[in-house]
């Protein structure tokens, strides 16, 4: 079921000859109602897959934009139950856009690993990224997600050598996420010349599509990465839109969606006139 949604989406994109655009938004930022409205409108604005952050108090791999986003969401009362509810409502109207949850281990642990895998699948979640759960600690989680039919999405990084890569891609499905910079989210900038050979390596090791994220803020960067990767993830630049709209008292939904549209357009046009393999 859920894995199928990710596979179907990448198969369709391959047929179209283009990369996926994957916006990352934080569940509950700036509040539950607006975040739900944004989520519902993302596919129409050009999202091919969606990464949905669930807020944690101590997100050790995030830079300031996503840290603050999580703090806004928590202050507005978002919970993990709230995140699942949000996805359930989204699924009433959209059965094709894959949703990948992204967050930290402690919340999943407290929910109960097996129960969470089941409840996530039932809500319509297709994949899970747990930033602080490397393969060494992930066996119980991988078992539970397998049983529930949810993909465990793995992160590979510039520090992953070939041996490490082989360990990482074991028991992964859907796609592999290549973290394009050594660093936290939203600080350094990804360089497509450095990224291209890495994407090829990860693709060869995993046999799966490769999404690139962690250093992409502008339509130009997104287009450049879209030429070499199977999917382009943009997160910090979108949560910055939320922050600025809140600060300027502007329409948060419209600001985020307009940014999503421009990024999606850049990704869609990136390979026009180019041979795709």
């Amino acid at each position: 079921m859920s894995k199928a949604r990710i596979d179907a989406r990448f198969a369709a994109l391959k047929a179209e000859g283009r990369a996926a655009f994957v916006p990352y938004v934080m569940a509950g930022d700036p509040d539950a109602a607006i975040a739900a409205k944004i989520l519902a409108a993302l596919p129409e604005a050009g999202a091919d897959l969606i990464e949905l952050g669930f807020p944690f108090s101590d997100p050790m791999a995030e830079g300031p934009p996503i840290q603050r986003s999580a703090q806004r969401a928590l202050a507005a009362g978002m919970t993990l139950q709230g995140v699942l509810d949000m996805v359930r409502v989204f699924r009433e109207r959209d059965q094709t856009t894959p949703i990948i949850l992204m967050g930290y281990m402690n919340l999943v642990l407290h929910w109960g690993i097996e129960a969470f895998a089941r409840d996530a699948a039932a809500a319509g979640i297709d994949g899970l990224i747990v930033v602080d759960c490397p393969p060494e600690e992930a066996e119980p989680l991988a078992d539970a997600l397998d049983a529930a039919g949810v993909s465990l999405i793995r992160l590979t990084t510039p520090t992953s050598d070939d041996k490490r890569l082989a360990t990482i891609v074991r028991r992964t499905s859907g796609f592999v996420y290549y973290v394009s910079v050594a660093g936290v989210t939203g600080v350094k900038e990804a360089d497509e010349k450095a990224v291209a050979p890495q994407v090829a390596r990860v693709r060869a090791a995993s046999g799966l599509p490769v999404a690139v994220g962690f250093g992409i803020r502008t339509p130009e960067r997104a287009a450049a990465i879209a030429r070499v990767a199977d999917a382009v993830v943009v997160g910090s630049a979108l949560v910055d839109e939320v922050a600025e709209a809140v600060e300027m008292n502007e329409d948060v939904t419209e600001r985020v969606l307009s940014k999503v549209r421009s990024l999606a357009k850049a990704v869609r046009s990136a390979r026009v006139g180019q041979l795709t393999s």
Binding site: A61, E137, T159, V179
Partner: peptide, 10 residues
């Protein structure tokens, strides 16, 4: 255990 982001595992 070692619950750290992948970048730090190596």
């Amino acid at each position: 255990g070692q619950y750290v982001p992948e970048t730090l595992m190596p």
